[in-house]
Design a protein around this nucleic acid. Structure first.
Length: 561
RNA sequence: GCGCCAGUAGCUCAGCUGGAUAGAGCAACGGCCUUCUAAGCCGUAGGUCAUAGGUUCGAGUCCUAUCUGGCGCGCCA
């Protein structure tokens, strides 16, 4: 990559000036194009150390630099001591050829070296349909996973759920009550029960399957049958929702397995061995404050039952021991309270500080006509993920969930989501992609037939074209930084920038036919087709990292008016 | 009371982990369709980066305090 070559040359120059350990050389892309393609601030950061004014140091670097070795055509001192570099034009042409050559692989890197990373997300308990918060998490987790995969990590998508706890019992009691009511048995509905209509649906299905076998039966066996039926039924529904939302998992990890396999007991034993546990008022505590938690935590209650903390620790220990020395948990910000204690728990067992990593996302509001949408018919208290993507479409829903940084509250504007216009950023990006296909159809070529080697890329000489190529060449860095920062919204912003730039370039041809791709002299047309194809590859690859389709053609739905 | 997250244009949000004159989309205003699909483009206007200090060559970005909003602080799950 161009930056690496340049950085190496700067290091060489600095060594010649007696600086052997300059650290990482600051090299960034100025927003102002007049400041060149890259700018370095080394002269300023070294000023104090060398006891010389920054501009003087910058001058010396500029004089010593070997432009050919650095891959730049120009280097100059500017402002308080920046050095601005301009890349050789040839670099852009090689870059274009590389994009077409790598095609679906353009933007991938080997940074992760194939090491395993565990990405846990959604992790909904099977007590009801998935809601929009799960949806944001599904979109986020899947995109982070895909971006990590693009960065060379071996990604394992994991869904953790509690199939045996107190919430499940609440569900079972709720279903039991509805079942009795279906049979005309007037029993009270549990105070803390699940009120959604889906509970009645499940009760009816049990009636259909088992008849009145459990009528009036308050025994464990009856409630357990309800529990098993309801869990299986809701797990199947959640899987269907995720499937239709195009999110797949490699593993569903059951909390109950931590008990049946003895891992919970094993975790207690190992924690005791550390000497960091103590008994107080009949409970077993762990000194999590040793690792930065603000208070110690109970592991085993006075009743002899473990708290939730314990299986959490056992679970994350299991991730580590299954070989995932990197783990990312995507969770709602309302769970942030567990972060410090889980980390403290696994640190007590010798795992590194900062394991696992967290992406904590804020809540989602759905707005329609300026009003918050609060209820779905079936779920009762909340809007379901399915309601949302069936109305807005999977692509739009995923994109909207991803386009804001996780830490900011998300307002899902349903009116905007349904709009098929440039106001809707998903369509803007997808349409730019489809538009390239349209050009190819018009030119009578297929995408695969376009080859950089067949064209004279020096014909792409306008500033708009150079800037567009530079933008496309940024894509691999965008993928890398979005992956490392666990921040898919960066890709959204980037894609919108590319779409804007290519629309602008394309529309110049409206006013001036000589600027078109098709209908200009053949040599020129071939060069512009290469650029068009490169744009299309970047848009498609970017959408792919987000789990969003890149259509070849978009037909607008006719409106009623 | 303590902790986490946020506060940037009228609205929704970016801001590359400290760089040069703070950006984009929408909304507003003015232009552009016998079109390589106008689902678009060009131009204009819009800012005390919540507030007050501090750190340094340089702060929207880092530190401290304050204000506002959201969330979390159990031997709940």
């Amino acid at each position: 990559m161009a930056a690496d070559k340049l950085r190496q040359e700067i290091v060489r120059v600095l060594q010649g000036m007696g600086v052997d350990d300059a650290g990482t050389i600051g090299l960034d892309r100025p927003r102002n194009p007049e400041h060149g393609d890259f700018a370095s601030n080394v002269a300023m950061t070294l000023s104090k150390r060398l006891g010389r004014p920054p501009r003087q140091i910058a001058e010396e670097i500029v004089q010593r630099i070997d432009r050919g070795a650095a891959g730049v055509s120009d280097a100059e001192v500017a402002g308080p001591g920046f050095i601005n570099f301009r890349l050789v034009q040839d670099y852009l042409h090689q870059g274009l050829a590389e994009i077409l050559g790598r095609d679906a692989g353009y933007g991938r890197s080997e940074a992760g070296q194939g090491q395993p990373v565990n990405i846990e997300f959604v992790s909904a308990n099977p007590t009801g349909p998935l809601h929009i918060g799960h949806g944001r998490q599904a979109a986020l987790g899947d995109a982070v996973a895909e971006l990590m995969a693009w960065s060379g990590w071996k990604v394992h998508r994991e869904f953790y759920y509690n199939d045996a706890g107190e919430q499940i019992m609440r569900l079972a009691r709720s279903v039991w009550a509805r079942y009795q009511q279906e049979l005309g048995n007037d029993v009270p509905f549990p105070e803390d029960g699940y009120h959604g209509d889906y509970v009645r649906e499940i009760a009816r299905e049990i009636v259909a399957e088992h008849g009145d076998r459990f009528r009036g039966d308050e025994g464990d066996e009856a409630v357990d049958a309800m529990r098993q039926f309801a869990v299986a039924r809701l797990r199947a529904e959640q899987n269907r929702d995720l499937d239709d939302f195009r999110v797949r998992f490699d593993e569903f990890f059951l909390e109950s397995s931590l008990y049946t396999s003895g891992q919970v007991e094993e975790t207690i034993r190992r924690l005791r061995e550390t000497g960091l546990t103590y008994e107080h008022e009949g409970a077993l505590w762990l000194r999590t404050t040793e690792f930065g938690d603000d208070k110690d935590r109970v592991m085993v209650k006075g009743t002899g039952h473990p708290t939730y903390f314990l299986p959490d620790v056992a679970y994350h220990l299991s991730k580590w021991e299954r070989g995932y020395h990197r783990a990312i948990n995507v969770q709602g910000a309302d769970h942030h309270g567990t972060v410090a204690r889980v980390r403290a728990g696994v640190q007590a067992l010798g795992l590194p500080a900062g394991y696992p990593e967290y992406v904590l996302h804020q809540m989602v509001l759905v707005m329609r006509g300026g009003q918050e949408v609060k209820f779905s018919k079936r779920a009762g208290g909340y809007v379901t993920l399915r309601d949302l993507f069936e109305e807005a479409g999977v692509d739009v829903t995923r994109y909207f969930f991803l386009m804001r940084r996780p830490e900011s509250q998300l307002t899902f504007d349903l009116d905007l989501a349904l709009e098929q216009s440039d106001r809707n950023p998903v369509y803007k990006v997808q349409y730019a992609h489809a538009r390239m296909s349209s050009i190819f159809r018009r030119a009578g070529v297929t995408a695969a037939e376009i080859r950089a080697g067949d064209a004279d890329l020096a014909l792409l000489a306008s500033p708009a074209e150079s800037e567009l190529v530079k933008l496309l060449l940024r894509f691999p860095e965008e993928v890398a930084s979005s992956a490392e920062g666990h921040a898919p919204h960066g890709i959204c912003a980037y894609l919108e920038e590319v779409a804007g730039a290519v629309n602008s370039w394309y529309h110049a041809g409206n006013l001036d036919p000589q600027l078109r791709v098709v209908g200009v002299p053949e040599e020129l047309s071939r060069a512009r087709l290469v650029l068009s194809r490169a744009v299309q590859i970047v848009l498609r690859n970017g959408l792919t990292t987000l789990g969003i389709s890149a259509p070849e053609r978009m037909d607008r739905e006719e409106s009623d008016t």
